[in-house]
Design a protein around this nucleic acid. Structure first.
Length: 597
RNA sequence: GGUCCCGUAGCUCAGCUGGAUAGAGCAACGCCCUUCUAAGGCGUGGGUCAUGGGUUCGAAUCCCGUCGGGAUCACCA
């Protein structure tokens, strides 16, 4: 039983004994004692005032006195206004530290073959342009959520749906055909995804020019957009693709292979991976047949032009297109097919989509459509809807060239980390490989932590010039603390000091030390909450709080120079446990921690 | 216009299942390396928690209105 539950039970017992009142454990409010008051844990007395027929102070005194006499782990108490501040026995804390210290996998639940399956979809790139800052938030959140759910005992399958077909792909294919002169990643020296992205932009430019000309000839903008030759050509290409035209398919395979090579490099650098990848080119047919079944079963209907629609007006939504008049499928059609295939492939208990909040409507509709098609799990899909990343000037716009490229950003971060390390002279006796590895961990750590410490549901601002910091509430700050502890532990080992299995319980420990143990003891609950709330930010903020407290301790107390051997062992054990929790927590965020930096 | 989300220090963010004097980091200023890593620690200044009402012993937190910002309502994905 954790401390909070223990206290709640003790309070309930006290109230029963003193006032003959039954209270539900959940309504007993427990919080950490604020720093300016003495004590470890505070009970809010106000809810019992009525039953006690006493002033808040009086009731607090009575409950506190009763608990002091009847609960062995409470050493003293004080009451301020309606708050009962309890101090916990030193031996209780030392016992806790012993437990934490001896558990290699502290905070992590184990997963076995019987564990429930959670499938988490994230990343979901289009194969017509390279990944950018928005994808970075998606990938980091998806990966971290997967790690957190594993830690909570789920068997997680990380999945990716690659949008490898559709009109947008045809646009870059067409532009390459028209303007490419046979350019390849090899011939140009460009990363494949960047090369293809270049032609997507080329298409857009040429298309805009055509529209302008048509408008000059007297067309409305609407008409011009629809009848521009390039657009018609792209649409023709999509139909040819769906009809398995060999030439189109060949070009498509070639260009996609360039993009995948590029994506793989980006994913690897970012440190994310997938257990099972789906391609829309392989799922859209299932989607189409599902939609056709829906038409046959009268869940959906066909218009005169042969396009297929779902009428959702009874649910307060609009009508939704599911198949175009030319028979080609749309985004929604594909997602229906993908969902069905996934549930066929795995015994999914919970399906989670990590997709931006701009698609809230899409997932609301997807859920309803699957339900209409008779899938009981349709309503249970979880859309983990995260906020957009904005630049100081506002939203990123690819057409205005304000997109922050993922590859560029990561390498800038690593460069900055390397320069900083060199300036500080931290890595003077490291090999070039070691230097590179540490720069990579620190640079990416800064980026990842910066993104993940923010509540995922909120939009966030990223300033490329200012957001990158290595001091304060940052990834490197936490990594640095880990490296410092490791350094102390190395020195201890050199002096032949190992960790004792059990810490002497008769030693005196300070408030600061017991508070750090209290923080450590909260770690499992934080992981659970992060899983329930789908919020890596809770872990990030917890890690920061822990590290800040530890740094104060590190500054104020000496470890290896402590003369009392038992106390020295205690401080080493405390430090080792903090390092362990730092590392475990950071790995849940997908951030590595170096042994030295 | 309908629906949904957001508004906390100069900036970036915590805190939101109601509880004590609203917290961090950055930026500014000052102090601490002959002591285990100064990417650290300590201190100073900085707030109408957008705004008006309501509920309550108690509201940044819950409810309603107003103002401001964003997303979405595509034969784009």
């Amino acid at each position: 039983m954790n401390l909070e539950a223990t206290i709640q039970a003790a309070v309930a017992q006290s109230v029963r004994a003193l006032y003959n009142v039954e209270t539900e454990l959940q309504q007993i409010q427990i919080q950490k004692t604020k720093k300016e008051f003495k004590g470890d844990i505070t009970v809010v007395v106000f809810p019992f005032v009525k039953a006690a027929r006493k002033s808040p102070e009086g009731a607090g005194q009575e409950i506190g006195q009763y608990m002091l006499e009847n609960s062995s782990f409470i050493s003293e108490f004080n009451v301020i206004k309606g708050f009962l501040n309890l101090s916990i026995n030193k031996t209780y804390w030392i016992d806790l530290l012993n437990e934490i210290n001896s558990d290699e996998r502290y905070g992590l639940k184990s997963v076995n073959d019987d564990s429930d399956i959670m499938m988490i979809e994230y990343s979901s790139p289009n194969t017509n342009k390279p990944l950018h800052l928005g994808h970075i938030r998606n990938n980091l959140l998806g990966f971290s959520i997967a790690e957190i759910q594993k830690a909570n005992g789920w068997k997680v399958i990380k999945t990716n749906i690659v949008n490898d077909r559709g009109i947008h792909i045809c646009k870059s294919m067409l532009a390459w055909k028209l303007f490419g002169n046979g350019e390849t990643p090899e011939s140009s020296g460009m990363k494949g995804d960047h090369l293809v992205g270049k032609y997507y932009v080329e298409f857009d430019k040429a298309y805009k020019t055509e529209i302008k000309e048509l408008v000059a000839q007297g067309m409305t903008e609407e008409e011009a957009k629809k009848s521009a030759p390039l657009m018609l050509e792209a649409q023709k290409m999509l139909v040819a693709w769906e009809n398995n035209d060999p030439e189109v398919r060949q070009l498509w395979e070639t260009m996609n292979s360039w993009v995948y090579a590029g994506f793989d490099a980006t994913y690897q650098q970012m440190g994310v991976d997938f257990d099972k990848i789906y391609y829309e080119s392989q799922t859209y047919l299932t989607g189409k047949s599902e939609v056709e079944r829906g038409v046959a079963e009268k869940s959906f209907y066909q218009r005169e032009d042969k396009s297929v629609w779902a009428d959702l007006t009874s649910k307060g939504l609009d009508e939704k297109l599911l198949l175009r008049a030319d028979g080609t499928s749309v985004y929604m059609t594909q997602d229906i097919g993908t969902a069905k295939l996934r549930y066929n492939d795995f015994d999914i208990k919970k399906m989670v989509y990590v997709v931006g909040n701009e698609q809230n409507y899409h997932f609301q509709v997807l859920s309803i459509l699957l339900d209409k098609l008779g899938y009981s799990w349709g309503k249970d899909l979880v859309h983990f809807s995260y906020g957009m990343v904005e630049l100081p000037e506002g939203k990123m716009k690819s057409r205005e060239g304000t997109v922050v490229d993922a590859d560029d950003l990561m390498s800038e971060m690593i460069d900055t980390a390397r320069e900083t390390s060199m300036e500080l002279g931290k890595l003077d006796n490291c090999t070039p490989d070691e230097i590179e590895n540490i720069a990579r961990m620190v640079g990416l750590g800064a980026l990842k932590y910066f993104i993940l410490k923010v509540d995922p549901r909120k939009n966030m601002t990223f300033n490329p010039k200012e957001s990158i910091d290595f001091n304060g509430n940052t990834g490197p700050f936490i990594q640095y603390t880990h490296a410092r502890i490791k350094s102390v532990l190395r020195k201890a080992a050199e002096q032949g000091i190992g960790l004792t299995p059990e810490i002497d319980k008769t030693i005196e420990i300070s408030e600061k030390e017991s508070y750090i143990i209290q923080l450590l003891s909260e770690f499992p609950a934080i992981i659970k909450e992060a899983g329930d709330e789908f919020s890596p930010a809770l872990i990030a903020n917890y890690e920061f709080e822990l590290v800040k407290e530890y740094n104060q301790f590190y500054h104020d107390f000496s470890i290896l120079k402590e003369e009392n051997e038992a106390v020295k062992y205690f401080r080493l054990a405390l430090s080792a446990s903090v390092a362990k929790v730092i590392k475990t927590g950071m790995l849940l965020l997908g951030i590595e921690v170096p042994e030295r930096m």
